[in-house]
Design a protein around this nucleic acid. Structure first.
Length: 1062
RNA sequence: GGGCGAUUAGCUCAGUUGGUUAGAGCGUCUCGUUCACAUCGAGAAGGUCGGGGGUUCGAGUCCCUCAUCGCCCACCA
């Protein structure tokens, strides 16, 4: 083996310069390309796909969290020797991206997409995509993500497109994709249907209008008007019926029964309320029934109502949708614009009148109101009703108004042609995969939302009226009658497209849902529509179809359609590529809970359908990052943090480590957010008020700066204040601490010679360190296996700072000065630092890699690689540990596995005695206000076993507390005057000659006395309690007895000392 | 309305199957910079574990209940 020369370590800065170091490390990684994976059947694969970030914009802190965790996992597994693939890529994010580009087009050029046309708009979006994809990938690289960059995919790239069309074709052929007319959430601003998932409700102040609809030719005893109530009066123009419950008495009974049922389960507070409801219902019952039963009778008799303003005759119908207890008990039915009314319309075979243009203005069906926006139409309709005396009353009311998540404008329900995926079988399979444990969700409580959602098996509408996305590969042609239908089929036959067209084309015939020919003619509906789906839209057949009068569906597919295929489409499916066979199913998916249904469930479903195998074995759901007020972060709220700003200010490792520390199991994480003044650098807390202002004055320097990411034009000339959080300081300090610990080690490695270590010959402090190292290694490995990121980070942080730096390095300061001990100290320091770097590498790869490179120069042959291999192979053979040439990059160094025989609990306990004596001496020094330069003398009274431990450590008391051990043993003569501390197993006497502050000492002792007395009182009470001594386990009782005895002995010493002082 | 989760120090969070005196970091206070690190070191103060009830020898931990907050799902004209 060729060994590299030991080189002296250059002078290193006492602060870790993350920006320089990170850049260098990134260069190294890019040169080596260790993140790139090729199929290698001699190794076990470990693979993961990135949740592809939307190319809408830059990454936010949630992405930083998500990707820090993924990278921690992939680096750890890579070090464990797996052949790791982390697939990188981005998502085209249909609506979101198109909306952003359209908004800019409007703002900057005053144009709409229609001014540009489909091709030009899509071209613009592509250049937007290029820009943001670059930015996103750059951000990920800055974060240190070790994705397989050469494989980077995009949901619209040819490889993904192929999978999309193959999937669509397959589902189409099985008729699991079908076209239907359904009510969709229509975004009038973007002019597209948005899915239920992209709709949020907002409570707005609105009105509840009670409108009188005249009854046509009322007979004696019948009302002249029917009153209906609505929050959307303009929709009355599309009304095609008024409904009343067919059996109001029965319905009211049911309501009453339900309330009473509820009463039995309700709490006291709710009970009063429910009782009041029942009483109110009973009081109004007779009166309500009289009116409603009459109306129900009229409905059965086929009576008609005159629709105001439109002057159309509409039927009074009986339908269970009308709830007698609500409002007047009658409800207007607008089938084309309300989901519930749509169902009523289907049941009663009502006409559906769409009164709205796609842009939200009223169409010709609205008669006199045509051309008006909804808002204006509403005003005019109300005014017209009032004028006609048909407005009964108006109530103020808060209403839940659905809004589009993308455009933030109100949603209008609208009837449209949409493609749907049938969910029953697909969902069933995905449910089974989780129920049978083939896919495991962590933490397990999220399993329920997955199963519940899939259990509903609601068909998935996949069309989107957009231009940015995978255009639906279906060409359609309507047939008005049987003859035309036959002609179409003949055409297809000539083109070679029929049921046997095989893998290229598939045909569906969609009959019209209106069976009455007269109505069909009236509504200009075709008899049937013939759809042809091509497995490859670029197939020349498409031109042939178009020549034959077929028209391609202009819609594109829901973004989630392509995302759903991500784990297999990125690996080359539908080809049976070696990658697919080797890396699929992937090992784990790391994501946030809000897309468990939208994305995770659908990946399972398509994976099972397309590949026949689950897409991943584990799903880890990480918490959400909230601001200091518990609100989600977002750009628009002004509390969103840009990961790059954190990287610039604190370094990538600090960001990553903070993220890993935050990834706890139980709850979301609050991150109080500050503004940083761009002028003086002062940072101050965000408040709900100041973050909404476009500009804010710095409380320190007084200069105004802009606060929002997208500043208003008038604030563009102001410098923008960064949104940061001081919470990252902890991790930054830790990174710096590690850097300086390494600096210390490197500084003392001159003359380093590798040699195997002999455990039995090591002094107690080394055996302690190795024991701790072995424990921590085991802990961290186990915690990562269980996705307990925060716990793993805590173990590492505590070990590195408290054990390694505060004790081990301090102890070594003396040994390194002693030529006899120096070589061994160097060997252990190099090996311990080496192991520590490996353990810290997954969460903080940059600083550890930087140090690793330096260590490679100072001590190229070192460490316990051979041991790790042996332990991994099940051997616990310490003789194997011969130092090895170290890996040229930490990224591919081996993950530590230390022999369990290194864990020495007795040694750790002994060391704890040393630590507690040290702490006690320091406490006395502080209390007595004795400066660190004043040497203290102390004596220890203890058993001989402890004596043999502490005596050799006398030098460390000198080094770490400037205290001289004068006497130690079972019989000693305490110095006079002294300060006493009675610890477990040892009594400490510090010589106070020359510095005594009697009052301070008495105070310290009294506090100690008080604590011990209090604790003992509790113990005595326990032991006096017979049921405790009898029922508690014997070992627990014994423990209490012992601690009482020990504490009593210590108390006596304290009290003795107090008496002496008095 | 249904479901999930949370409430522990001034702040942000840990707290294993119930078992001695409930922990960490930040912040605060005191003291300290030749000797890896002031992004540091030493020490201190600070908690009736949201309220109430129950089970138990013993509850931050298990059960019930109330209160507050957050999220997801379904929604009433």
């Amino acid at each position: 083996m060729e060994t590299r020369q030991t080189a002296p370590t250059p002078e290193l800065a006492n602060r870790y310069d993350f920006s320089t170091q990170e850049a260098e490390v990134l260069r190294l990684w890019d040169e080596r390309q260790d993140y790139h994976a090729e199929v290698d059947r001699t190794k076990k694969p470990y693979s993961m796909v990135i949740p592809p970030p939307n190319v809408t914009g830059a990454l936010h802190l949630g992405h930083a969290l998500n990707n820090s965790l993924q990278d921690t996992l992939i680096r750890w597994r890579r070090m464990q020797g797996y052949n790791t693939l982390w697939m990188a890529g981005t998502d085209h994010a249909g609506i979101a991206t198109q909306a952003v580009v359209e908004r800019r087009l409007k703002e900057e050029e005053g144009k709409t997409r229609h001014d540009l046309g489909r091709e030009a708009l899509v071209e613009r979006i592509w250049s937007w995509k290029d820009q943001y994809e670059r930015r996103i990938l750059g951000q990920l690289k800055s974060l240190g993500a070790s994705c397989d960059w050469p494989r980077t995919r995009f949901t619209l790239d040819p490889m993904c497109a192929r999978a999309v069309f193959a999937t669509f074709f397959d589902l189409f052929r099985q008729a699991w994709i079908y076209r239907g007319k359904k009510l969709v959430n229509w975004d009038t601003f973007l002019q597209t249907a948005v899915s239920d998932d992209e709709v949020f409700n907002e409570t707005v102040k609105g009105h509840f209008w009670h409108i009188r609809y005249p009854v046509i030719d009322p007979q004696a005893g019948e009302p002249t008007h029917v009153i209906v109530a609505t929050t959307r009066p303009e929709t009355l123009l599309g009304d095609t019926a008024v409904a009343v419950h067919p059996d109001p008495a029965k319905a009211l009974d049911k309501v009453r029964d339900e309330l009473q049922e509820k009463l039995t389960k309700a709490s006291d507070k709710e009970r009063t309320e429910i009782r009041a409801q029942i009483e109110a219902l009973a009081a109004r019952r007779t009166e309500m029934l009289a009116g409603l039963e009459l109306l129900a009778k009229m409905a059965r008799a086929g009576r008609k109502i005159l629709l105001p303003l439109a002057n159309r005759q509409i039927p009074l119908i009986a339908d269970i949708w009308a709830k007698p207890e609500l409002g007047s008990g009658c409800v207007k039915i607008t089938p084309a614009h309300d989901p519930n009314d749509y169902e009523v319309g289907r049941r009663a075979n009502l006409e559906m009148i769409n009164i709205m243009h796609p842009d939200g203005t009223m169409n010709v069906e609205a008669g006199a109101f045509a051309g008006l926006t909804i808002k204006d139409a509403r005003k005019r309709v109300v005014a017209a009703l009032e004028e006609a005396g048909l407005l009964d009353k108006v109530e103020d009311r808060e209403i839940e108004l659905p809004h589009s998540d993308r455009s933030k404008t109100p949603i209008e329900p609208l009837l449209a042609n949409q493609w749907f995926i049938k969910m029953d079988q697909l969902a069933e399979n995905a449910i089974n995969a989780v129920e049978e444990g083939r896919v495991q969700i962590h933490p397990p409580r999220y399993t329920r939302s997955y199963l519940d959602w899939l259990g509903e098996k609601r068909d998935w509408p996949v069309s989107r009226q957009l231009w940015w996305g995978h255009q639906i590969p279906v060409w359609s042609k309507p047939a008005q009658d049987r003859q035309e239908l036959k002609q179409i089929h003949d055409q297809l036959f000539e083109l070679g497209i029929d049921k046997s067209a095989g893998g290229r084309a598939a045909v569906q015939e969609e009959p019209c849902d209106e069976s009455d020919p007269a109505k069909r003619a009236h509504l200009k509906l075709p008899l049937a529509t013939v759809h042809v789906c091509l497995s490859d839209p670029a197939d020349p057949l498409s031109q042939a179809l178009e020549s034959a009068g077929f028209v391609r569906d202009p819609d594109v597919l829901d973004t989630w359609f392509s995302s759903a295929l991500w784990p297999h489409s990125t690996l080359g499916w539908p080809e049976k590529t070696p990658e697919l066979q080797y890396f699929y199913p992937t090992s784990v998916l790391v994501t946030s809970r809000d897309i468990i249904t939208l994305w995770v469930a659908r990946m399972v479903l398509t994976g099972l359908n397309n590949v026949g195998e689950i897409p991943f074995r584990d799903v880890y759901i990480h918490p959400k990052i909230l601001d200091g007020f518990g609100e989600t972060m977002s750009k628009s709220k002004g509390n969103g943090i840009d990961p790059l700003e954190i990287i610039n200010k604190f370094g990538a490792d600090a960001l990553r480590l903070s993220m890993v520390q935050m990834a706890t199991e139980t709850q979301d994480v609050r991150l109080p957010v500050q503004f940083e003044c761009p002028h003086c650098g002062h940072s101050f807390e965000q408040t709900k008020k100041n973050r909404e202002l476009p500009a804010v004055g710095c409380p320190k320097c007084g200069v105004e700066f802009s606060t929002q990411w997208a500043a208003k034009p008038e604030h563009l000339e102001l410098a923008r204040g960064a949104v940061i959080s001081e919470r990252f300081e902890v991790a930054r300090n830790f990174v710096n601490k590690l850097w300086n610990a390494a600096r210390f080690v490197l500084k003392h490695l001159e003359g380093y010679e590798p040699a195997p270590i002999q455990l039995a010959q090591l002094p107690v402090e080394d055996r302690w360190l190795l024991s701790r190292l072995a424990s921590v290694t085991t802990e961290v490995t186990q915690r990562l296996e269980q996705f307990k990121f925060a716990e793993a980070a805590r173990s590492l942080y505590q070990f590195a700072w408290d054990d390694f730096c505060s004790f081990y390095l301090e102890i070594n300061k003396d040994r390194l000065q002693d030529p006899a001990q120096r070589p061994q100290a160097q060997q252990l320091l190099a090996a311990a630092l080496d192991t520590l770097l490996r353990l810290l590498h997954p969460p903080m790869p940059f600083v550890t890699e930087s140090i690793w490179q330096l260590l490679n120069r100072a001590a190229p042959v070192r460490g316990w690689d051979q041991l790790f291999v042996a332990v991994a192979a099940g051997q616990d053979d310490f003789a194997q540990s011969v130092p090895q040439e170290s890996s040229p990059s930490l990224m591919v160094a081996r993950w530590p596995m230390l022999p369990s025989s290194w864990i020495d609990t007795a040694c750790e306990q002994q060391f704890a005695v040393f630590q507690s004596v040290l702490a006690a001496i320091r406490d006395i020094r502080n209390r007595q206000n004795i400066g660190p330069k004043e040497t203290l003398a102390f004596s220890l009274r203890c058993e001989s076993s402890i004596q043999s431990l502490l005596q050799p450590m006398a030098g460390y008391f000198r080094a770490m507390a400037n205290a001289e051990l004068r006497e130690i043993g079972t019989e000693i003569t305490p110095p006079q005057p002294n300060a006493v501390a009675s610890l477990e197993g040892v009594d400490l006497f510090v010589d106070l000659t020359g510095f005594i502050d009697v009052e301070a000492e008495k105070q310290r002792l009294r506090k100690e006395q008080e604590e011990l007395t209090k604790a003992n009182a509790g113990r005595q009470a326990k032991l006096a309690n017979e049921s405790f001594t009898q029922r508690a386990p014997a070992n627990v009782v014994e423990e209490v007895r012992q601690s009482l005895a020990q504490a009593t002995a210590r108390l006596e010493i304290i009290e003795q000392a107090l008496r002496t002082l008095s």
